[in-house]
């Protein structure tokens, strides 16, 4: 999702969550539900970005680790961990994907004018996977570009001969 598309609306409603020490915001229109952590079935050879699958109400849904895609260091989990079930587009097709969050905070509406492009100098995050960022109460909040992240994952070359 490009900056200009983000800014085509006056406001953007997002759900904020923490991964490691980083706060992220995901537009609520992608959000289907927030669940307590589900048992994860590991998919051998799938790599760390989409390490497994979970059973979401009878559907087998891939579980993605956004922290891996965005290079956010893992600092461990506690009982605030949640799964967000998202309806997104993966390589041109509608798909349901679960992402793990170390904590989910709130649903909030932000003014799109406050969204800034990712500074080119910010080498900490892969810029191609971010739509932008804005200043929250406790530092920067990243807006991950979910379409980019998932499509990139779907098209990645075969990593292992499994």
């Amino acid at each position: 999702m490009s900056m200009s598309k983000l800014k085509s609306e006056q406001t953007l409603t997002v759900v904020t969550l923490t991964l490691g020490r980083q706060t992220l915001a995901i537009p609520t229109r992608f959000l289907r539900e927030i669940l307590d952590p589900l048992p994860v079935t590991r998919v051998p050879g799938a790599g760390s970005q989409v390490p497994g699958v979970v059973n979401v109400r009878g559907s087998v849904v891939p579980l993605a680790d956004l922290g891996q895609a965005l290079a956010i260091p893992d600092v461990g989990q506690d009982d605030r961990r949640r799964f967000l079930v998202l309806d997104v587009e993966v390589a041109g097709e509608a798909a349901t994907v679960a992402v793990a969050a170390d904590a989910v905070h709130e649903v909030t509406t932000i003014d799109t004018q406050t969204i800034e492009p990712v500074p080119a100098a910010a080498i900490a995050w892969p810029p191609e996977f971010l739509s932008g960022l804005y200043r929250g109460t406790e530092g920067f909040v990243l807006l991950p570009d979910l379409g980019q992240i998932f499509s990139n994952l779907a098209n990645r070359p075969q990593a292992v001969p499994l």
Partner: peptide, 19 residues
């Protein structure tokens, strides 16, 4: 049989999943 998502399309050893 439940199909694997595109995110796991590269995992050749697995053809699907079941609950």
């Amino acid at each position: 049989i439940k199909q694997m998502s595109k995110l796991h399309a590269d995992v050749r050893a697995v053809s699907g999943a079941t609950i």
